[in-house]
């Protein structure tokens, strides 16, 4: 191999040590980020998060510890106002049913159909505490606006020729029945839960249509 001069050797050794150290620190942090919360990762929580977020974030609990065992349905309906000022409440529209129809027999489903509404609903649920009357934080407000805009992009500005005034969501979880050979009882299904009506403004449509 090559014989290096002393300055060259110094540069190589220092940068080599730096690279190996950096690699070790990154991999250590990624290990702790993926491992269950433990004594070490709790002790160094701040440094760990500073390194991993935002760009090295990862979640490989794919279908783990248990796969999702419910089909979650999200529907929306709108209230419209006629020219004479009369307000009509329209029928429920199945938004996730639309997604499922777009995915069916599609070899390469789009993220628009497979992920957008599904993950927006997850985001809404995770940012809204279960207890009644709790005020959503900043993320909760983002989630509400996002969800509203996803639905409005599908509804448009009008329904039945009348301007949309308000929008409401509801959601239910239907348990996937256990396999035919299983003696188990089917899991828990939850009935429809309705969210409050949210007003719709022109601002909500910015860029959508």
């Amino acid at each position: 191999m090559r014989t290096w001069s002393i300055p060259a050797l110094t540069v190589l050794c220092l940068s080599g040590a730096g690279m190996i150290g950096g690699t070790a620190i990154l991999l250590g942090a990624l290990f702790l980020h993926n491992a269950p919360s433990n004594a070490l990762s709790q002790e160094y929580r701040q440094q760990l998060d500073g390194l991993v977020y935002p760009e090295f974030e990862q979640n490989w609990k794919l279908f783990a510890p248990n796969p999702l065992q419910q089909n979650i349905t999200v529907d929306a309906r709108v209230q419209t106002i006629a020219d004479d000022g009369e307000v009509h409440t329209r029928d429920w529209v199945g938004l996730s049913v639309q997604d499922a129809a777009a995915i069916r027999h599609n070899p390469a489903p789009s993220h628009v159909d497979q992920n957008m509404l599904r993950r927006a609903w997850d985001f809404y649920e995770s940012s809204h505490p279960a207890e009644d009357g709790a005020v959503p934080g900043q993320r909760g407000k983002l989630a509400e606006e996002y969800l509203k805009r996803i639905a409005l992009q599908r509804f448009g500005r009008t329904a039945g020729g009348e301007r949309i005034l308000q929008i409401q969501f509801r959601s239910a979880a239907k348990a996937v029945p256990p396999p035919a050979w299983s003696t188990e009882e089917p899991g828990e299904s939850t009935p429809y839960k309705e969210l409050p009506w949210w007003p719709v403004n022109e601002d909500d449509y910015r860029g959508l249509l």
């Binding site: 279908f63 783990a64 510890p65 248990n66 796969p67 999702l68 065992q69 089909n71 996730s96 997604d99 499922a100 995915i103 069916r104 027999h105 599609n106 070899p107 489903p109 497979q114 599904r118 996937v176 029945p177 256990p178 396999p179 299983s182």
Partner: peptide, 19 residues
């Protein structure tokens, strides 16, 4: 579900993952 060996059954019945 992975322990009882039925885990695979469930994703195969989710509307979002059954083209």
């Amino acid at each position: 579900r992975w322990q009882d060996g039925t885990a695979l059954h469930y994703p195969l019945r989710l509307d979002y993952f059954t083209p």
